[in-house]
Write a protein that binds this DNA or RNA. Sequence first.
DNA 1: TCAAGTTGTTTGGGTTGCCAAACAGTGGCA
DNA 2: TGCCACTGTTTGGCAACCCAAACAACTTGA
Lengths: 180, 180
Amino acid sequence: MHDWREYDQNPVSHSAAHHLVAIAELFDEYGYARVSDVARLLGITRGSVSVTLKGLKGKGLVTEDDRRFLGLSDEGERIARGVMAKKQVLKGLFMDLLGVSEEQADLDTCKIEHLVSDETAARVGRALLFLRSGSENATRFIEGLREFGRQGDAEGFPSEEVQELAREIARETEEPEGSR
Amino acid sequence: MHDWREYDQNPVSHSAAHHLVAIAELFDEYGYARVSDVARLLGITRGSVSVTLKGLKGKGLVTEDDRRFLGLSDEGERIARGVMAKKQVLKGLFMDLLGVSEEQADLDTCKIEHLVSDETAARVGRALLFLRSGSENATRFIEGLREFGRQGDAEGFPSEEVQELAREIARETEEPEGSR
DNA sequence: TCAAGTTGTTTGGGTTGCCAAACAGTGGCA
DNA sequence: TGCCACTGTTTGGCAACCCAAACAACTTGA
């Protein structure tokens, strides 16, 4: 169906995404962002940030002031906002719908935020808006799920129950051979 | 809250996970797996597989026959089954709950399957089981969501609507500074 | 004013994971 | 028997990323 290595064929790498988001966040909070600030926020050295940003400037995603203040181009801004929005909606999905703790949701979304497609993220957003619309259907669903969740075997992963479910889904979608 | 670079502090790398899953899938389908088979399935050279598997053998995840047939140790098997199950439940979540196309769901899950925590994956599994339990709440929710989904602006990502939602979630969870 | 701290850059090193190419071993088959 | 196809391994290269360390160019405060 497609090549499994598409995982790193994204518009920007995980690293680059974090650099862009860091600049956006620093700008939002302090009104400016410098190499050192980005390095501190990301927990890496100034040298690494300096090199990475050189590349991002080359790609036209990051700009630099005459006073060494960093900024984002329109495209860089768009990417950063997209990644930030994806993280938030995924976090909302995990917490509000699935009942995952905030700590865990944060860990999970941090890893996948930049990998999820726009389409899927948009749908997650819609689902979340629906969930928050106060619809009768939505609230009852959540209640039902919470109740249901307390029943199953909560031991480890994957539980036998979940493995059976996984096999079932695999049979249904009938992945053609060689797709991964 | 935690270091953003945890993204690559996983028990096994994305690459290693795919090698293990490939062996499991080949074994399921043909009853055996060799270096060449894995290479063909993953679309990389035999040399690369040879080197990677040397490492996985060293970690005790992969075994080798006297006839050069590959196998998985208990731990390797556990990891492979876990990743495969995660992929399937996430795919189910995206398709059945969010209405994402199979093609897109496949692309998305392929990228994140090995990154999602056991806890979150288990909860996704429970939600999916609930969805398939035929519960009145579940089916009504899906219907309501489908209807709701047709209303919003479907232009690009992130739409203004979704960005607003993201900001809202961010305000609620109130991420402490320096968490990324 | 001048020493001390901060800033951004450069350089050499290390890791992971891929490829291409060269080898060597094995099996079939004419 | 000898050739061809296939298998698995090794080697040198390359591209991302990271760090540590050394620099030069500022601020800044006593």
